[in-house]
Structures are given as structure tokens and as C-alpha cells.
């Protein structure tokens, strides 16, 4: 159908990506067909799908960074987050849906890192969608056995007297690592601190930026 769709926006209001211009694949055909059937059968509406994509696009590691920065600056919140991670983040205003969250604070002698060896469980309602490497065979296989070697591939070298604790996200809980607050940030406000919190520092494969 030779009409020009390049100037149009997708139903979610975003510009089309270049994948729209490559040859249609079998699975793309299936996605279109499944989506249309679900709408025709009255199970979903096009508007629901659009707003779900918008909600997903709005989630990013910036949300998690605010949680971490607040943990650093607000002792009451820190206590609430450890007691019930889901409720505390919900109370901060994040729409985390049914996600059950456990916060894992690092200490000077403990470094936490999260993996899902069985599939790709990730705190997506707080951090957005997982990076490709998190879903890779290499990361899923090796992290539970040789976490220090995996961390060093991310540029994180830990001294032997720091315990590495690997969390295999096998069932219903999702995990966010609370990295150690960087030195030299005394008196900083939450928003300033959040700028230092990287996505990988909340997975455990990175550290916060230096102040």
C-alpha cells in the first residue's frame, strides 16, 4: 500500500522507528494480528495499549535513582524501604503495579548484585526495561558462579574483604541495589545525589558516579 507514513506519528504519539521501513517479519505479522484480534474481541482497547507503552516509556532508571537518593537522605524512608520496598516506593508516587520489591543496601563490607538465571526478571516498573546484556546467556550463566570476574568486566574491582552477595531473582520478588553513598556528598540534596546514581549501580554491576 504505497502511502507515505514517514510524516505520521505512531498511535502512541512517537515517531516511527526505522524498523518500520524494513521488510515485515513473520513475528511482526503475528504481533499485528494478535493485537487486532484482542481489540476486536473486546479484550483490550487501542487506547489501553497506547497508554501502556507511554507508561513504559516514562519509566527509567531516574526513578530508581530518586529512591536511592532518598534512602541516603531520609532515615525514616530508609527504614520504610527496607521494611516494605513496594509500599515505600508506591508512597513516593511511583506506579510500580503489582511488583514486589526488596531493597538491598550495600555496606562497606557487602556488595550486592542481581541476576535472573532462569529468565530475565528485573524491576522494570522502577528501572524501565532491562538492558540486553542482563538477558544474555553470558550474564545469566556466570554471575552466580564467578561474580567478581563478571563485575570486573563492568570495571568494578572489589577487594577480597568485601563480601559479594549474588541475588538470583528466581520467583516473585524484584530487587534494587542501594549503592553506598559516595564520599564528599555531605549536605547534598536528594536531586543532586540522584544524578550520581547509575542504572548499573542499582543492578550491582556498577558504582555511583563520583561526587
Amino acid at each position: 500500500m504505497p502511502h507515505d507514513h514517514h510524516d505520521h506519528l505512531s498511535p502512541s504519539g512517537h515517531p516511527y522507528r526505522k524498523d518500520d521501513d524494513v521488510e515485515l517479519t513473520y513475528w511482526q505479522t503475528m504481533e499485528i494480528a494478535v493485537r487486532e484480534l484482542l481489540i476486536e474481541k473486546g479484550e483490550l482497547t487501542a487506547a489501553q495499549i497506547t497508554s501502556q507503552i507511554d507508561a513504559m516509556d516514562a519509566r527509567s532508571p531516574a526513578n530508581g535513582a530518586q529512591v536511592v537518593a532518598r534512602y541516603w537522605t531520609d532515615p525514616d524512608f530508609a527504614e520504610a524501604l527496607l521494611a516494605d520496598g513496594s509500599q515505600a516506593t508506591r508512597d513516593m508516587g511511583y506506579d510500580i503495579g503489582p511488583m514486589k520489591l526488596i531493597a538491598l543496601p550495600n555496606t562497606p563490607t557487602l556488595h550486592n548484585v542481581v541476576v535472573c538465571t532462569l529468565c530475565s526478571c528485573y524491576p522494570r516498573n522502577l528501572l524501565g526495561l532491562p538492558p540486553d546484556w542482563y538477558k544474555s546467556r553470558a550474564y545469566r550463566s556466570r554471575t552466580v558462579r564467578e561474580p567478581r570476574r563478571v563485575l570486573s568486566e563492568f570495571g568494578v574491582e572489589l577487594s577480597p574483604d568485601i563480601e559479594v552477595r549474588v541475588h538470583d531473582s528466581t520467583a516473585d520478588m524484584r530487587y534494587i541495589v542501594i549503592p553506598n553513598r559516595p564520599d564528599g556528598t555531605e549536605g547534598w540534596m536528594q536531586d543532586q545525589l540522584a544524578e550520581l546514581v547509575t542504572r548499573d549501580s542499582m543492578i550491582g554491576t556498577g558504582l555511583p558516579k563520583h561526587s
Partner: peptide, 28 residues
């Protein structure tokens, strides 16, 4: 799929932005 503990390659820091059709699958 139960791959914890297997030997494997170095972890490559791959990432890509998701295409519209992929986001639609996720939304569905």
C-alpha cells in the same frame, strides 16, 4: 534455560532501543 553456573563468554555491554512493534508486544 536453567543456565546458572555454566561457563560462557565475557559479558558484552549490549543495549538497544526497542522498536515500536517490540513495545507493543510488551504492552500486550
Amino acid at each position: 534455560h536453567d543456565m546458572g553456573g555454566d561457563a560462557s563468554d565475557p559479558v558484552l555491554p549490549d543495549e538497544h532501543d526497542f522498536a515500536l512493534w517490540e513495545k507493543r508486544v510488551d504492552a500486550l
